[in-house]
Design a protein around this nucleic acid. Structure first.
Length: 266
DNA sequence: AATGGGACCTGCGCGC
DNA sequence: TGCGCGCAGGTCCCAT
């Protein structure tokens, strides 16, 4: 499931490899993923356009075009961008001026593609909380103090802080030694500070590794990211904690699988 | 206001 | 063998 580090990795890959190229043809194999506007307008608006700039906001990719429009991509859970692709399993294929294909794959069809005049006014974008790297420790502390929600669902709340999903929420809470069920405003000053620091460290290191390849995530090249080897709790139910050797537990929080070490995380 | 559940989807692994 | 079921999780939407 692509979260901030995975989307940032794809963004950087796109910047290196796709920026400056022209879309000569768009083939929509499954119209379900085209959310806005109509498929016909989507194709028409993209055909002949050159990709100028690649941006990321939270888990959203934005490809700004030379015709003032932007291709906005949310990969959701199983979305992939692959180049060069073969159009075999893709939901949408972008044929580029270099004769190669940029494929949008998405097994579960949760992904969303939009072609917009102004991506910043998209409701989802408007509702996003700050990027983790854009806030100071004191602001983060204030944000936590104002909420009494359980800390793990709160970290995943895109309106609170944007870009963190189920996997990284679990990993940062383990490293901060905070129980995922703790209420946000119960965190001591020192705990908030550690949490702030580990969020930055974990996200930065995950980006450096090209993201976590669990489930379907791959980089633009189709290669896997390397951060999964550094997971301490995610997906490790019943296995031994790497710190204390007790068993990693899995509970449901906000309807989501939540992995943690009951011994280390208090 | 905050929380919980279902919906959207598909493929996989499980038990029978 | 093969079937049905639950589950995976990002986000929206509705109900409480």
């Amino acid at each position: 499931m692509p979260e901030l580090p995975e989307v940032e990795t794809i963004k950087r890959d796109l910047e290196k490899i796709i920026a400056g190229k022209k879309i000569v043809c768009v083939c929509v194999h499954n119209p379900l993923v085209i959310r806005q506007p109509s498929v016909e307008k989507f194709k028409k608006g993209l055909t002949g356009a050159t990709i100028k700039k690649i941006l990321r906001r939270a888990k959203v990719l934005i490809l700004e075009l030379d015709n003032k429009k932007s291709l906005v991509i949310h990969l959701k859970m199983t979305g992939q961008l692959v180049y060069p692709g073969d159009a075999k399993k893709s939901r949408v294929s972008f044929y580029l001026s270099d004769g190669k294909i940029l494929d949008f794959n998405d097994q579960r069809l949760f992904g969303e593609l939009r072609l917009l005049d102004d991506w910043r006014s998209l409701k989802f974008i408007q509702g996003l909380g700050p990027e983790p790297f854009a806030i100071t420790l004191s602001v983060f502390k204030q944000m936590l103090a104002r909420k009494k929600t359980k800390i793990k669902p709160l970290l995943m709340d895109q309106a609170f802080i944007s870009g963190i999903g189920n996997l990284y929420a679990a990993e940062v809470l383990f490293r901060a030694r905070i129980n995922p069920e703790r209420s946000s405003n119960s965190l001591k000053s020192k705990e908030s500070q550690v949490l702030y620091q580990v969020i930055r460290e974990v996200l930065r290191e995950a980006i450096r590794c090209g993201g976590s390849s669990v489930d379907d995530y791959v980089r633009l090249s189709g290669k896997k990211g390397n951060y999964a080897s550094q997971h301490m709790v995610y997906g490790r139910e019943g296995q031994l904690c790497m710190e204390c050797k007790s068993k990693i537990k899995r509970i449901a929080l906000g309807g989501r699988g939540t992995y943690y070490c009951p011994q280390c995380q208090k």
